[in-house]
Nucleic acid binder design. Sequence first.
DNA 1: TAGATTGTTAATCGATTAACAATC
DNA 2: TAGATTGTTAATCGATTAACAATC
Lengths: 209, 209
Amino acid sequence: MFKKFKIPDATIGRLSLYSRYLAEADEKGITTVSSQNIARATGVTPAQVRKDLAYFGEFGTRGVGYNSRELYNYIMKILGLDKRWSVAIIGAGNLGRALTQYKGFQQRGFDVKCIFDNDPKKIGKKLANVEIYPIDSLEEKVKELDINLGIIAVPAPSAQEVADKLVGAGIKGIINFAPINITVDGSVILRRVDLAAQLEYLTYYLEET
Amino acid sequence: MFKKFKIPDATIGRLSLYSRYLAEADEKGITTVSSQNIARATGVTPAQVRKDLAYFGEFGTRGVGYNSRELYNYIMKILGLDKRWSVAIIGAGNLGRALTQYKGFQQRGFDVKCIFDNDPKKIGKKLANVEIYPIDSLEEKVKELDINLGIIAVPAPSAQEVADKLVGAGIKGIINFAPINITVDGSVILRRVDLAAQLEYLTYYLEET
DNA sequence: TAGATTGTTAATCGATTAACAATC
DNA sequence: TAGATTGTTAATCGATTAACAATC
């Protein structure tokens, strides 16, 4: 796709928000939106909206605005969401189970195809119609089911090992929910989501009271 | 506490990571660590580590490094984690249930004290020993249980309404898991965590292949 | 045409990195 | 003392905001 130069990470996150607003607008029958409309709905500035979009092309009409549906389709294509993706979740604990059942993934084109865990009591069982396999079978299953993305939901001490297995199996994108820094080959996209750290951000600001 | 000027948001997130490494080091009996040790373990640069710490004071000894336990304690205090916090989760769906049971919160000092939902079938039941109350009783229960933080885990269309209720009940810190922009009074700290957007960040980079 | 709104350039702001004096 | 490592300042890099010409 048309990625001009280096795009700020934050831009990608905002595109995701824009797309949700555009879907909503389109559903409501609003065919044209301005950068100001988008900005107000998503909590950014109109200049920011235009700048973010400008990284990828010219999608609007001066003096008029953007066609909701058209811009939605463009953004979804930019984000790679014009097709569905297959996801493996590693770790069938509370978090892994919740992510498997989370409706928000399906809605955006992500299908959780398999779960991996080491607990013999869990293996063979199903969660929301998704089977739990032993971690040993990861490489095999990932290839068999043509998995694109991996979500690490195991405790911190096992996270690096699991990441290595995912990379070994050829997975190119990983989300790590374990609160630890892990490293992967440079060709693999890695993102860490630290849920407790999010709460700590709040307490940092509240702490002085 | 000693917050000199405006601290970058990213610094707060890194402090969280540093603290986990320091706890680990201290447990292993490593009494002294350098900015380089911390940096390597957490995936940042040594200069960044020193800069982050310098916002809050002088915690090290030139030529020597930092005392692991001491620095750990300082950082935990900076993050407001020298005391425990009471959390309410709104929405007893998959995500709300998982967050209630998530061990990572307890470990860092967050106690989920109550859950709120509108589904009569769920009200009165317990999840991991935490009772589910009707959303109507939010204000009352928040005050009764002295809740500090709220986690919004309801669908996007209800998120703003729930946020208003939380603010009305006097809650000062909110995490919003709904994939929508919500607004709150300026005195309330708000943070959005968009799980699907995290996956979209991966697909954005993988999409060109 | 007049009003509206984009796309883009320049100015500003903020965060990271590099370098080094201070000092153990 | 010599080697190591901090704390801090200056330089660099990157992202956001403001302004405005282009144009519907």
